[in-house]
C-alpha cells in the first residue's frame, strides 16, 4: 500500500490515531509492554509504512521490497499494530501479544511474525543489520532501500557508533536511519542518564547526512524521506524530535510509561482522548 503525498497528508493522522488505539488496547490486554516509545514513534512508522515503503503485505518475502528494521525492538506493539492494519497479521492476533505460544512475542521475532525481517530487542544492533541488508541489496543490484528506527537512549550503545562508521565508510546511501528523539529512557531523561548531545553534530562527524524534523508533523516526515532518497554517497539519518507517550496526556513525557502498560482506568481515559468510543 502506498499513498500519494496528498492522500497521505489527508489520511495519515486518522491512520496514526487508529494505530495508537490498537497499541493501547494491545498493551492493556497483555498487561505489560512499552507504551511511551510505541506512541512516540507512531507517526514516523505509520508514515513510513503507508507512504514510503515499497512492500506487498500479501507477499512478505517479495524480493523487491524495501526493508525495515525496528532497532528499538521494545516498540513492538507499534510494529504489530502497523503490520496488522496492513494485513500482514490478522487483527485478532493483536490481543494475544506476549501470551503463551502467540505469534507476537514481547519483542519482534522474525521466526514468529510475518513482515519482521530480523529479531530485535537487544538494543544497539539494528543499524549493523541494516548496513548488512543495504550492502546485500546493493550487491544484488536491487534499488530497494533499507530503513531502521533507533531509539535515542539506544545510541548509548557503542555498537551503534561502530555501525555508524561502517555506513559512512561504505557510502551506504540506500539506507535511511530514523532516530526517535523522545528524550526519555527507562531510568529517566536521556540527558541526565547519559548525555548524547550534541547528537546531530555527532552523526555529522561520523559522515552522515543529518535531517532534523518534528517527528509528529507528517509534512516534515514525508519531506525528510524524500530528501533522504536524494542523498548520494553517504547515509542519511532523520533525527525526529518526538514526545514520549504522544497522543495521550497522561502518558506524555512520563518516564513511568516507558515500560508500563495502561491499566483499566488509564486505558479508558486514553481511548477517550483518542476519540475511541467502545472498549
Amino acid at each position: 500500500m502506498q499513498w500519494s503525498r496528498e492522500e497521505a497528508l489527508k489520511r495519515l493522522p486518522e491512520e496514526a490515531r487508529q494505530i495508537r488505539i490498537e497499541i493501547l488496547k494491545m498493551l492493556h490486554q497483555s498487561g505489560s509492554g512499552h507504551t511511551g516509545g510505541s506512541l512516540s514513534a507512531t507517526d514516523l512508522v505509520t508514515a513510513l509504512f503507508f507512504t514510503e515503503l515499497r512492500h506487498k503485505p500479501e507477499d512478505s518475502n517479495w524480493e523487491g521490497r524495501d526493508r525495515f528494521v525496528l532497532s528499538k525492538g521494545h516498540a513492538a506493539p507499534l510494529y504489530y499494530a502497523v503490520l496488522s492494519r496492513l494485513g500482514y497479521i490478522k487483527a485478532e492476533e493483536l490481543c494475544r501479544l506476549r501470551k503463551m505460544c502467540c505469534m507476537l512475542q514481547g519483542h519482534p521475532d522474525s521466526k514468529s511474525t510475518p513482515g519482521v525481517e530480523i529479531s530485535t530487542g537487544s538494543l544497539g544492533q539494528g543499524l549493523s543489520i541494516a548496513n548488512g541488508i543495504a550492502l546485500g541489496l546493493r550487491l544484488n543490484k536491487s534499488d530497494a532501500r533499507t530503513y531502521v528506527l533507533l531509539g535515542d537512549g539506544e545510541v548509548q550503545e557503542g555498537m551503534v557508533w561502530e555501525a555508524a562508521m561502517t555506513s559512512a565508510h561504505y557510502k551506504i546511501d540506500n539506507l535511511c536511519a530514523i532516530l526517535d528523539r523522545n528524550g526519555l529512557q527507562i531510568d529517566g531523561a536521556v540527558e541526565e542518564i547519559m548525555s548524547i548531545e550534541p547528537l546531530a553534530d555527532k552523526w555529522k562527524a561520523f559522515g552522515w547526512h543529518v535531517i532534523n524534523i518534528d517527528g509528529h508533523r507528517f509534512e516534515e516526515i514525508l519531506d525528510a524521506f524524500e530528501a533522504a532518497k536524494e542523498v548520494n554517497g553517504k547515509p542519511t539519518i532523520i533525527i525526529a524530535k518526538t514526545v514520549k507517550g504522544k497522543g495521550v496526556s497522561i502518558f506524555e513525557n512520563k518516564v513511568k510509561y516507558h515500560g508500563a502498560a495502561p491499566n483499566d482506568e488509564e486505558l479508558e481515559q486514553a481511548l477517550k482522548e483518542l476519540g475511541h468510543k467502545k472498549l
Binding site: Q125, S128, G132
Partner: peptide, 13 residues
C-alpha cells in the same frame, strides 16, 4: 560486534 550484526543483515538480504 558490528561485523556480526552486518553479517546478519547480509543473511537477511
Amino acid at each position: 560486534q558490528d561485523m556480526i550484526g552486518t553479517a546478519a543483515g547480509f543473511a537477511v538480504a
